[in-house]
Amino acid sequence: MAQIVSLTGEASQSGPLKTQLDGKVLTITLANPPAHALSLEMIGLLHGALLDARDNPKVAVIVIASSGKVFCAGHDLKQMRGYREGADGGARALETLFAACSEMMKAIPRLPKTVIAKVDGIATAAGCQLVAACDLAFASEDAQFGTPGVSIGGFCATPMVALSRNLSRKHAMEMLLTGDMVDAKTAMRMGLVNKIVPRDYLDQVVAKMAERIASKSAMAIARGKRAFYEQADMRLSEAYDYANRVMVESFTTADSDEGLDAFIGKRKPEWKGE
């Protein structure tokens, strides 16, 4: 298992993962070019950074980004090929790798804070999965997405989990069965990304959205995000019953009182976090 590390300060500018806290927005940048691959080490570092952000009261929104022509090319294929030299053909090492990656991906919807993917470049396999796992995704016009496991004799089964929860079944199956790349416009049409913007404006658009969400009640965001993902796996009647309980809980808090008073009084709310 890769070591999970903690952020030691508000900014870290060295190593394969960089972090920068601007106001209430934490940007986590994949910095292991050229592929920004999700090696076992990188998975551990990213998972650790996400958990640290979860526990940091200064952080309200998390942005996952990278630099260069690749956002994230998925798992480190050289590392995976090396595993195959093991006595068991790499089965145990691959189980460890994929389990670690799945735990990291599952942590994203469980975080009580919004996670945004900022994609400027290629996102393939587990990199595409990372985009799909985030709550929101914004892409430059040059972004491309794909699940090419089938093209190298495998299948992007774990990316399929997140992908099939964003796209229609037929769109997801088309990507999985062909391994073909799709451009940003197609990805937005399929439901993988929220918005496409020119590369020169991507930082600005994502920052504006992150700051807008960060200005809301952190407690309301946490409760609402948890409810969104939990109800998605329920039957319709069960989902409505659950959502009704969440609504009652949400509108019997000090923050909801403040929000209603601020709206009626036409002023900016001052959240109490309770």
Score class of each variant (00 low, 15 high):
196 I>A: 00
158 T>F: 11
102 S>K: 14
87 A>E: 14
131 V>K: 00
167 L>W: 03
173 M>V: 12
103 E>Y: 06
190 M>T: 01
106 K>I: 00
88 D>H: 01
167 L>N: 01
76 D>Q: 06
144 Q>Y: 13
94 L>A: 06
111 L>W: 06
94 L>R: 10
150 V>A: 11
79 Q>D: 07
191 G>P: 09
119 V>W: 04
148 P>F: 03
142 D>C: 09
146 G>V: 13
147 T>S: 11
99 A>F: 13
163 L>P: 00
148 P>G: 03
148 P>C: 03
100 A>M: 01
143 A>E: 06
193 V>M: 01
122 I>K: 10
116 I>P: 10
154 G>T: 14
120 D>R: 06
91 A>I: 13
91 A>M: 12
120 D>W: 14
86 G>S: 14
115 V>F: 08
136 L>T: 15
197 V>L: 06
106 K>S: 04
180 D>Y: 09
123 A>P: 03
167 L>Q: 01
131 V>H: 01
163 L>V: 05
164 S>T: 15
84 R>T: 15
155 F>H: 14
111 L>N: 03
144 Q>R: 11
189 R>T: 00
153 G>L: 14
126 A>K: 09
141 E>N: 06
143 A>Q: 02
149 G>S: 07
104 M>P: 13
124 T>V: 15
142 D>I: 10
149 G>P: 04
157 A>W: 15
153 G>R: 12
191 G>R: 02
112 P>I: 02
113 K>L: 11
193 V>S: 05
178 T>G: 04
157 A>Y: 15
107 A>C: 12
93 A>C: 05
